[in-house]
């Protein structure tokens, strides 16, 4: 059931070039007759220093893939590594630490703790870990994202785009091995969305970060280096150096005559 997913054939990727990989990753919901396979024996390698987009129609399992790679969800079968660490089989406490220290997150909405100001939100993962953020790096991130004059603001006082930039800064500031962004532009107008995508691109190009982004927007996917297409729990195709038009074209093929609109809001 191996599926060509990344640049290299499964099993051949060297650990120092992959930020994360999965082998035979299967996630099933329910049991017996009503079992639904969200992920069906997926093999995938996420390359370090690249911007990978995961696309697919609603219910294709793209969010589940991200959750399993990030250690947010348990797997039914298969193995997942983050760098050299196999995370399948890790205990809850170790997973928590792993997320805290080695992974950065951006969600579609509700990214920030409403009681904390922007700066406190940005440094929260490091504070939770009891570490002091690297001041120069923090300053660089804050300035890159243009948040300097917003640091004392509470989330409620920030626009949607600003909130996502704060979330982006939070994901970047601890220099994680991998940043997962789950529909980061889903709730933004196109200008703010473009801005956020620009920052993610910059994070990869200038700061050498690794980003995995789940999206249903071909325009957003076009900012990535590589698009993985998911359908029915399997990776069915990939596209290097994508353009919006090419991605949209490919999506049409998979969804079959537009029976379902890509990215209908009923995701998950």
């Amino acid at each position: 059931m191996s599926t060509p997913a990344a640049e290299h054939a499964p099993g051949l990727a060297s650990a120092d070039r992959t930020a994360a990989r999965a082998r035979g990753l299967t996630k099933a919901y329910g049991s017996g007759e009503t079992t639904v396979l969200a992920l069906d024996s997926v093999d995938v390698d996420i390359m370090r220093g690249r911007f990978t987009a995961v696309m697919g129609p609603s219910g294709s399992g793209k969010s589940t893939l991200m959750h399993c790679l990030a250690g947010l969800d348990t797997v039914s079968a298969g193995q997942v590594w983050l760098g050299d660490t196999e995370i399948t089989g890790l205990r809850e406490r170790e997973l928590t630490r792993l997320r805290r220290d080695r992974i950065g997150f951006m969600f579609q909405s509700f990214n920030l703790i409403p009681t904390l100001n922007a700066l406190e939100n940005i440094t929260l993962p490091m504070n939770i870990a009891g570490r002091d953020p690297d001041r120069t790096w923090l300053d660089q991130v804050v300035d890159t994202l243009g948040l300097r004059d917003r640091l004392k603001h509470r989330p409620a006082q920030l626009s949607g785009g600003q909130q996502q930039r704060v979330a982006c800064a939070r994901a970047l500031v601890s220099r994680p091995e991998l940043i997962f962004a789950d529909e980061p532009t889903g709730n933004l107008d196109s200008r703010a969305g473009l801005e956020v995508l620009g920052f993610l691109r910059e994070a990869v190009d200038e700061l050498g970060q690794t980003v995995v982004m789940v999206t249903h927007d071909p325009g957003a996917a076009a900012h990535s280096d590589l698009v993985l297409f998911l359908a029915d729990g399997r990776i069915v195709d990939e596209m290097h150096r994508p353009t919006a038009e090419a991605v949209l074209e490919r999506m049409r093929l998979f969804t079959g005559a537009g029976s379902r609109l890509p990215g209908s809001p009923a995701e998950d």
């Binding site: 406490r93 928590t96 509700f110 920030l112 993962p125 939770i128």
Partner: peptide
């Protein structure tokens, strides 16, 4: 709920 989920996702341990 969502706030707690977010905190847990970004690495707040159960004990914390």
């Amino acid at each position: 709920t969502r706030e707690i989920g977010l905190l847990r996702a970004i690495g707040l341990s159960r004990r914390q």
